[in-house]
Design a protein around this nucleic acid. Structure first.
Length: 265
DNA sequence: TTTGCCATAAACAGAT
DNA sequence: TATCTGTTTATGGCAA
């Protein structure tokens, strides 16, 4: 997996806000970071509040209106999706919220732009991913992609099969599933990707995995989920891998931005 | 000037 | 009943 592209550090002057000033991030970005920083990548709204308060002290003293804005964003933004809690495990009010994978690249790009404009904190460039090496068990219901340690060459990601992403599934709210682009539809098919030798560069032919940072992909299905695994000699799909990389970048950005939060907003 | 995005406020209904 | 959660509408600021 390629390292997180460096957040720009070329700005000559640092624009680090004073402590407890309002963070430059939109509520969508804050919610995105909070959810990405959670173990299961899903949080109830109350925990999103807690995360924001813990990481951005500005909101400790801010009037309560920002909570309304958080809920407003969750409801209005297509980037977030509501999951009904398991009734048997339901504790507290409300649902769980997760990031729609379709919009992860967009959210990540917004984060990166905001970050590159407002900060050049060098620590952000070197911090390992928050979730690096984390093990993922049962995939998050709403996430079509889950990333484990890419070096482990075990399960890379999972995705609910298309039939799971329907309103018939009680796990999901009545909200329609995120629209899937053809790229994402590709993720949920069981077909292998055709590998055209002639279209591969020399470098890729030499060693498609070692130098490029790309990975090999395989699908298999177990129970409700389809999994993408890393056997040793399967096809390489660059479009899909690009999505995986964006997902990894999102996780790294969430972790990196925690450093920023620690810097004293 | 228009458009799009975002923040904020408010009202309301339903759930706990 | 009070509080929390989720949805919706309205408004204003800002930048492209």
């Amino acid at each position: 997996m390629t390292p997180l592209p460096q957040l720009e550090s070329s700005a000559p002057t640092q624009l680090i806000p004073p402590a407890s000033s309002k963070p430059p991030y939109s509520f969508s970005s804050l919610i995105f970071m909070a959810i990405e920083d959670s173990p299961d990548r899903r949080l109830p709204v109350k925990d999103i509040y807690v995360w924001i308060v813990n990481n951005f002290p500005y909101y400790r003293t801010a009037s309560g209106g920002w909570r309304n804005s958080v809920r407003h964003n969750l409801s209005l933004s297509k980037s977030f999706r509501r999951i009904q809690r398991d009734k048997s495990q339901s504790v507290g009010k409300g649902s769980l919220w997760c990031v729609c994978p379709e919009y992860r690249p967009v959210l990540l790009e917004v984060l990166r732009k905001t970050h590159s404009y407002h900060s050049t904190n060098i620590n952000l460039l070197n911090k390992p991913a928050l979730l690096e090496g984390a093990e993922f068990g049962v995939p998050a219901v709403c996430d079509s992609m889950e990333m484990s340690d890419p070096l482990s060459h075990t399960i890379l990601l999972s995705t609910p099969s298309p039939q799971i992403l329907t309103s018939d599934n009680p796990t999901f709210s009545e909200n329609p599933p995120c629209p899937l682009t053809p790229d994402h539809e590709e993720l949920v098919t069981m077909e292998s990707v055709e590998y055209h030798q002639g279209e591969v560069s020399e470098e890729m032919e030499k060693d498609p995995l070692s130098d490029s940072g790309y990975i090999e992909l395989h699908y298999y299905q177990s129970h409700q989920y389809q999994y993408l695994v890393l056997p040793g000699d399967t096809e390489l799909d660059l479009e899909t891998v690009e999505i995986l990389q964006l997902d990894a970048e999102a996780q790294e950005a969430a972790g990196s931005l925690l450093d920023l939060a620690g810097g004293g907003y």
